[in-house]
Amino acid sequence: MGTAGKPSLAVWKFASCDGCQLTLLNCEDELLSIAGAVTIAYFPEATRAVVEGPYDVSLVEGSVTTPHDAERIQQIRAMSGTLVTIGACATAGGIQALRNLGDVREFRSVVYAHPEYVETLDRSTPIAAHVSVDHELRGCPIDKRQLLELLAALLAGRKPRIPTYSVCIECKERGNVCVAVADGTPCLGPVTQAGCGALCPSFARGCYGCFGPQDSANLPSMTRRLRAQGMSEPQVIRLYRTFNTGAEAFRAESQRVVSGSTAGTATAEEVST
């Protein structure tokens, strides 16, 4: 526990852009209330002060890309009560997980030309590949409302209400006209987890999957739809292989398209094997 019986909060960074932890500082109206309800025990982006662990809640941003970080996450897990991964890097390896694909030849040759110089692993992996994770917030970046809901739930000792339905539901909630149906715009909304508030369709743009795959998505059907809307196979592959390239459903579907099995009528079961 932190001082005065308040729960302690620590914020940790791995390979990432800082955007997800910045979301906490972007809670301008709530920041001082949060600071009143918890002890901010470790948050280098915000304060020099450090309170020794253990910590009641750890927010972890970023993916594991170095041997040192692979050890550091174990130590953080050991001194954290509740561990929450925040954002696409922490939950799926981030865009830097593009290194995990064997076909980034120039990247690999550059890395291995000087392996002694920059300490890096050949894969970028999510936090859950290393330690157990209690909750996750998706997104590139995470959504401020979801972060506040999570913190409020943890403080109240209840389960956070983080929807796992698709972006399509949020479009309906907002009253958006469907960009895929009305304009023929390729949109990953049907297979992407909600959380952003259907931002891209609200800006006349197709969803590009920031929040990663929704848990019961039919990816082969999505691929057929994208192809019918005029996207080439390389375009479809790149769309899956962006900010959540390491998320299993996107990884597997992009691999299936690469191996050329899209002509058939693959089912979700086939893809998951």
């Binding site: 791995f14 390979a15 890309t65 170095t66 970080d69 981030g94 865009i95 830097q96 593009l98 290194r99 980034v104 120039e106 990247f107 550059v110 890395v111 920059v118 300490e119 890096t120 970028s124 375009q235 790149r238």
Partner: peptide, 13 residues
Amino acid sequence: PPRFYEAFLRGRA
């Protein structure tokens, strides 16, 4: 840790 953006931008549209 480096994230190698300039590497994986190669081959993107």
